[in-house]
Structures are given as structure tokens and as C-alpha cells.
Design a protein around this nucleic acid. Sequence first.
DNA 1: CGCATTTGACCGGCGC
DNA 2: GCGCCGGTCAAATGCG
Length: 229
Amino acid sequence: MLNQSLFEEQEMPTQMGCLFPFASNMSFAPLGHNNQSLKAFPSSLTSADHDVPSTINLTETLLSSAAAAGNMKQINSDDNLGGGSQLLSLQRSSANLWAWGDVNECLSSKRSMVDDHHLGVGAMKMKKIKSRRKVREPRFCFKTMSDIDVLDDGYKWRKYGQKVVKNTQHPRSYYRCTQDNCRVKKRVERLAEDPRMVITTYEGRHVHSPSHDQEDSSQASSHLNNFFW
DNA sequence: CGCATTTGACCGGCGC
DNA sequence: GCGCCGGTCAAATGCG
């Protein structure tokens, strides 16, 4: 099983909040962005009530990740988290979630699968950018039980590649944020050991707000998260 | 027709 | 140095 201890308890929620403004707005505020904004998420979220809006199912996922690190209360995986979600099939997604700050580490327990996850920069890019930056973009990923590969995180993504990685039967998909000047990327793959689990890896920082088109009216204050990093 | 996705080729990094 | 592998590109294709 994957090692949750790799999760940096204090850091991660902040990072999550940074990487997912919508998430910080809803759940990670207490540990992330001081004071402001954080009334957006329904209290029911942490109490595993069934009133959680379906539109924030992914946030629920992140929430659970934080919970797994001991920062927050774990959501009961048996709870019905949202009737009639049309966005995601994450009703059961809070089970067995984890998160971590660096893919290198997160999959280290499966060395054969991902020994070294240097993000290869494309050849063309390499030519354009003479000196490759050693500083990697902030990354982290999380696991979600879902039938849907691409979770709705509020951003728009364009697929630019797909690859079958060694020792896995499911291809890994590569996505880029469609927003101009935003270089955030994400990878989506299914866990070899359990194809029901989707592994989503984010890299980089959005320079814009999420293009959420199903924003809950009760979360109008979520625009408070429009500060970027 | 424009945009998104697919998919094979290509490249660099790394291990041996 | 060579081969393997993951990540990206870009032409072809699909779709609304």
C-alpha cells in the first residue's frame, strides 16, 4: 500500500489550496489561506453528511486526502455524498484516498512502476529553453475511486498525449490547461493494482481562476479564491 | 470549419 | 555507448 507518511501534514493542505483554489476555498482554508474565504464549503462536508453538493465532489476527494494525513476528519466512505451527481461518479470516492507532494515519492513504494519521474521536457522545448530549469513545478497527485478518468476540477484541459507505461495495462493520459499562458499539466492514469482507482497528478500552478460553469450559487464567495501564486 | 483528440514519432534522461 | 522508458510534439483524424 502506498505510504501516506510521505504526506507533509502541514504543507500539503497549503499546496493543495494553492494548486486548487477552489479546494482551498472549500476545505483547506484552516491550514492554508489565513482566515479569508473559508466559509464556502458546507459544514456537512466534514461531517460526511449527504448534503454535499455534487459539484464539489472533487473537493471532497481532496478533503479526504487531507484527512488521510491527519489534518482533517476523515470522511466516512460509506456515506452517500451527493444525490444525482451529473459531474462525477465520486460518490464513493472518499475511500482509500491519499495524496502527496511529489510523484517521485508518492510512487516510490512501487519502484518498478515509476522509478524516476523526471518530467521530460519536450525536445522542441528543450531547444528553445536553453537551460532547463532545475526547479520543478509543484506537483502532487491523489487517488480517487471513479469510473471517470478525467475529474472535473473546475479547469479546462486539453489532451496532448497518451502513453502506455510499462507494467500497466491502462494508458496514461497527458493534459494541459487550455488557458493561455497557463502551463499547468496533469496526468491521469489508473492504478495497476486496482483499475477502479484513478490517479491524477497535477503539475504547475494555474495563473487564472477555474472556469467553473456549474458554480453553486451558495458559493458565490468562492471568488475569494482568485488570488494566485 | 474550427477545435479537440488520437497516435506514431521523436527526444532526453537514466541505468546498465 | 546503447537501449529502454516516459514525456511531448504534431500530423491525421474525429466531432460538433
